[in-house]
Nucleic acid binder design. Sequence first.
DNA 1: GTGATACTTAAGCACATGCTTAACCAATCG
DNA 2: CGATTGGTTAAGCATGTGCTTAAGTATCAC
Lengths: 116, 116
Amino acid sequence: MLNQSAALDLMFQALADPSRRVMVDRLTRGPASVSELAKPLAMSLPAVVQHLQVLEASGLVRSEKVGRVRTCHIEPKALRNAEQWIAERRTIWERRLDRLGAILAAGEDESGESKT
Amino acid sequence: MLNQSAALDLMFQALADPSRRVMVDRLTRGPASVSELAKPLAMSLPAVVQHLQVLEASGLVRSEKVGRVRTCHIEPKALRNAEQWIAERRTIWERRLDRLGAILAAGEDESGESKT
DNA sequence: GTGATACTTAAGCACATGCTTAACCAATCG
DNA sequence: CGATTGGTTAAGCATGTGCTTAAGTATCAC
């Protein structure tokens, strides 16, 4: 398994492209073939396949080929990882603000706290 | 204002680099100067400043310079946008699974639904 | 004023990304 | 069978990214 950080790299990188987000968006509504994914995108099929490879490398999407059609679907656990990284940071921030608020409220008339 | 998609591009792109995530992480614990942000990173100061520019362009971080030190802080609203994009997609997916489950449960003994 | 500190600007370089076209292969269809 | 459909592979190219070093500029400390 990749280390946590490298996995997030791939994940956020994958989400950083609008075409790939369109593909993910489509896949949240159910599985699709490569050419279905390609339909709304103004680019060649090989380009779409390359985007798909980025998505698969990130773990966000999986696909299997049966006959001559490759069917893609989302891996929601992966989405969750990215979401969680962000949520954790937001939480830290909010807790910090709470503490800060408490300190300010308590020390409203004084001026010297220990540090920062 | 940037359109929604371009904003997400910048946001996810900004989060796609481990050094930048370290910087964001640091900033969730409170404001910091450029050289404080640089300390844990094994790279030159200019490189750090370039990362900082990416973060600012994404709206995730802001900074002001007073005297000769530039102080950076996080913009938690921006974090929220990225989180929300992901959360929405996950929700769509989960609702879909619920519907699918209901359909399967209802039609457990039949075999012809209208279409996929 | 002299020097250290905290950046800032600019140039350059190696490698990654996002596309393209052309050619190819393998499963259907008629 | 031969033609289509669905996808794959390979090569090439323009632009972007992540760093570097070298040379500034603007405070602040003495």
